[in-house]
Design a binder for these strands. Structure first.
Length: 401
RNA sequence: GGUGGGGUGUCCGAGUGGUUAAAGGAGUGCGGCUGUAAACCGCAUGGCUCUGCCUACGCAGGUUCGAAUCCUGCCCCCACCA
């Protein structure tokens, strides 16, 4: 994603790097030629559904490709699917998504847009942000015209639909119509190119059919690889909890990157950093470098170095971090009830805190509390470092009364 | 319109009157091991004022000493036939 070179090649070979599909064949080159001939920018579309507010590295792969188009002088049209979010896209999953309230969608959309600018160039000449409620809130006659463009058989060709159909699993009408709405977005903004994950391939291609039906030139379609989550198995997704968020804290980001399985490390290098790992490095060092560069990209080099130092110290060495948050505690009868303190400090339930103590996971200044040791003398606690598990620390201070 | 299936803990999913806070799995946490927050192994995993109490199996009632399990009504979901 990080373009180190000064020039930004404006050709199909460069812009087609790392894509899984560039369809139809030669379409991208043709679009670029047209743009050059007519001295205009290409309109490069990305539709995002503001169902989950935070952007993660998986999104960053697609956004990074858009950034390359911007750097080559083109215009990205970011469509916030505020209207389609009310429909729920089933892509790649077998269950229906919940419908969101208008307020949730608004909040998510704002967050998403803000975070997308960590990767995209915000220059108004290079970025246009639209809401699809601008055009999708259409009269019935318009909707029927749109529906006429496609047959049920066509839609059921889509992989996840056909699987569900075969398995006699539910497919809602809303889901079925979703690709048409997405395709209409391409009509509304006159997209030259649309980019998405490989799971979007069907929808992106259907967009071409719909554009044609409306008498417009058909968009070129680029699909990007799906980045695996930190579990290394499923796609990165917030709902699966295996994501590395673009706005995660440096230490969190570094640690989560270190937790990816070695097998997917190469993909992370290629898709996120846009290069291959250094062949001379062993897997441990290659992963350290990967983690450091990702943090560096999103938080800067100093934060990256600090995150690395923190990781080495806390996770590898098992020591307490250099800076520890303080927590105040109250005293009753000279003792402190630890489950309450732990629950308040780390957001776990008191029952869970009790279990942690009984499992020997809680220590004060490196001395583990024993099972049943739930109440501690206040003088022992004041100023001590409370450690829960391997990497949760708090410095305890008695609240002044 | 008809027939059949189903709504259980964070998720998936067993359980059809009595050690059922509810099998099993996933996830998560802790511990061990490790270059790693990976893999693997072990343990734990509703809440609380904790040797007890409270809450929980779509919702509301009912039967019973006792119900997730039986009955009544309601709500919701799915498939099939047409």
């Amino acid at each position: 994603m990080q373009s180190t070179s000064e020039e930004h090649p404006n050709d199909a070979v460069w812009l087609g790097r790392n894509v899984v599909d560039s369809l139809p064949q030669g379409a991208l080159a043709e679009k670029l030629a047209i743009a050059h001939r007519e001295s205009r920018q290409l309109r490069v579309k990305l539709g995002i559904d503001p169902t989950a507010p935070d952007i993660h590295l998986g999104h960053a792969v697609v956004l990074g490709k858009l950034r390359e188009f911007q750097d080559a002088g083109h215009r990205v049209v970011l469509i916030i699917g505020d209207y389609t979010a009310r429909v729920g896209d089933p892509s790649g999953r077998s269950a229906l998504r919940p419908m969101l309230s208008a307020e949730e969608i608004e909040t998510n959309a704002a967050t998403f847009q803000e975070q997308a600018l960590k990767v995209l160039n915000a220059d108004p000449g290079r970025l246009e942000v639209r809401r699809n409620s601008e055009w999708l809130d259409m009269p019935m006659t318009e909707l029927l015209k749109l529906l006429r463009t496609t047959t049920a058989a066509q839609l059921l060709e889509r992989d996840d639909f056909s699987k569900r159909w075969a398995a006699k699993q539910p497919i809602s009408m809303l889901e079925l119509v979703y690709p048409l709405l997405q395709g209409y977005d391409s009509v509304a903004i006159e997209a030259d190119v649309e980019i998405g994950g490989t799971d979007q391939k069907f929808n992106l291609l259907l967009g071409r059919d719909i554009q044609r039906a409306y008498g417009l030139p058909e968009q070129a379609v680029l699909t990007m690889p799906i980045l695996a989550g930190v579990d290394g198995r499923q796609k990165m997704s917030k709902s699966l909890g295996n994501q590395i968020g673009i706005t995660d804290e440096p230490e969190e980001m570094y640690g989560r990157t270190m937790s990816i399985p070695d097998q997917v490390m190469g993909d992370y290098y290629k898709l996120v950093l846009g290069r291959e790992p250094d062949q001379l490095l062993g897997p441990r060092d290659a992963k350290r470098e990967l983690a450091r560069e990702i943090v560096s990209w999103l938080h800067g080099p100093e934060a990256a170095a600090a995150a690395q130092a923190h990781f080495d110290r806390v996770v590898v060495q098992g020591d307490a971090p250099e800076r520890i948050k303080e927590t105040l505690f109250d005293v009753q009868n000279g003792t402190v009830h630890m489950p309450g303190v732990i629950a308040d400090a780390f957001g776990v339930s008191r029952s869970e805190a009790r279990r942690l103590i009984d499992q020997g996971a809680v220590a004060l200044d490196d001395t583990a509390l024993s099972a049943g040791e739930h109440d501690v003398a206040s003088e022992r606690l004041d100023g001590a470092v409370l450690r829960v598990g391997k990497r949760r620390f708090r410095r305890m201070r008695q609240a002044s009364s």
